[in-house]
């Protein structure tokens, strides 16, 4: 399971290069703040899938899964669980 600081570093590198990853709070609302827009969500998801080597189904493209570092960490963690 990826740690939230890995997710943070990746988000900052791609969407807020001026920010120190440690300054991005776990619960910062990425959607309401416009850091991730409905159009860049696709870029976020495909980037996450490549970076953390997970399969993300198009049906999972619910914005609420990607609202914060916490929710992304949970989502990627769940996607990495071996399927039964």
């Amino acid at each position: 399971m990826p740690r939230s600081d890995e997710i943070k570093a990746w988000i900052v590198r791609n969407f807020a290069p001026d920010v120190d990853p440690a300054d991005l709070p776990d619960d910062y609302d990425l959607l309401a703040s416009g850091l991730i827009s409905s159009l860049s969500l696709v870029r976020l998801v495909s980037g996450l899938a490549a970076e953390f080597d997970v399969d993300i189904d198009a049906a999972d493209l619910r914005p609420e899964y990607f609202r914060s570092v916490t929710s992304i960490t949970e989502f990627v963690g769940a996607a990495l669980q071996p399927q039964a």
Partner: peptide
Amino acid sequence: LNSLKLREVCREGLARTAIPT
């Protein structure tokens, strides 16, 4: 000052589409 702090300001005062990418 960083972009995250400014985004908080934008979030308070602007519609979502008006927040700079």
